[in-house]
Write a protein that binds this DNA or RNA. Structure first.
Ligand SMILES: [Mn+2]
Ligand SMILES: [Mn+2]
Ligand SMILES: [Zn+2]
Ligand SMILES: [Zn+2]
Lengths: 140, 140
DNA sequence: CAATTCGTGCAACTTTGTTGCGTAAACAGA
DNA sequence: TCTGTTTACGCAACAAAGTTGCACGAATTG
């Protein structure tokens, strides 16, 4: 399960950002480190067995982790944020995939070049958000 | 202002879909036909001077128009739907631009080819949603 | 004009997320 | 190990966006 290792890593990362390594923060970040795919607030709540932090605290911890750059927030058409750790590969801008059957969200490696887009005259590019929809390997 | 023409067009489009051309539906679709950019539920409400339909009715009219293919819904990171008429040019899949300063949303003409993306093994592509962020011509 | 169907308004509810504030826990320094 | 300060947490209340059920009223059909 490697859960102890995840907790140790989590604690170390939190301290490195100058935050207090509270039980809640460590458990949440450890949980995120263990997730392959991006997870919602609800899913995190459900998987924090034993520990049941207040909803507000969970929101605030997730926001803090995102502010510190340890995780990133993913917006989706279902109006629910999903969270995923910032592995090295995901530190740069990247696209996401969302399964239209099971709603799973995973991070993709790349983003198409902005050269493939033309903006109206006078418009200035800053960034792009790309979500690919389809069926994941389990749902095909 | 061409508003009469918009109302006539709206009424015609609604009847063509087999719906009742009620005052509310006609006014909402006429308003959307007149908009260059995509508008939110709130903005539509504010611009329907004189007529003040119930919030729920507005939601239902917009959903009906979208179901009939007369308009399309645009999702955004601010968790608010925006609506825009389906001009011929926008019947196919297309990208959107959102201004990071004034929150204006406009439809872009094209979508980059799916060949520029690689999905994990076993994943099946269905569609993509692309939002370009930046500054519009008025905000640069 | 009457019957039927469809659209609208109202009230209540749901989901997701935010704000303010008092209290408790973490950490640093003695 | 104790003490004081700072930071995080929990609770309650709030907010925005959207949904559902149901009764009533207005279009359309004939
Ligand atoms: Mn990601
Ligand atoms: Mn569009
Ligand atoms: Zn799936
Ligand atoms: Zn702008």
């Amino acid at each position: 399960m490697m859960l102890n290792t995840y907790r140790d890593t989590a604690e170390e990362l939190i301290r490195k950002e100058g935050g207090r390594a509270t039980g809640i923060r460590v458990r949440i970040l450890a949980l995120l480190l263990a997730q392959e795919q991006a997870v919602t607030h609800r899913e995190i709540e459900a998987r924090l067995t034993g520990l049941q932090p207040d909803r507000v605290t969970l929101y605030r911890v997730l926001q803090w982790l995102a502010d510190k750059g340890l995780i990133h927030k993913i917006t989706s058409d279902d109006r629910v944020w999903r969270f995923h750790v910032n592995h090295d590969a995901y530190m740069h801008q990247h696209a996401h995939f969302k399964c239209t059957r099971c709603a799973k969200v995973v991070c993709l490696d790349e983003l198409p070049s902005r050269r493939h887009l033309t903006l109206p005259a006078g418009y200035q590019f800053q960034s792009m958000e790309l979500t690919v929809k389809g069926l994941c390997a389990q749902c095909v």
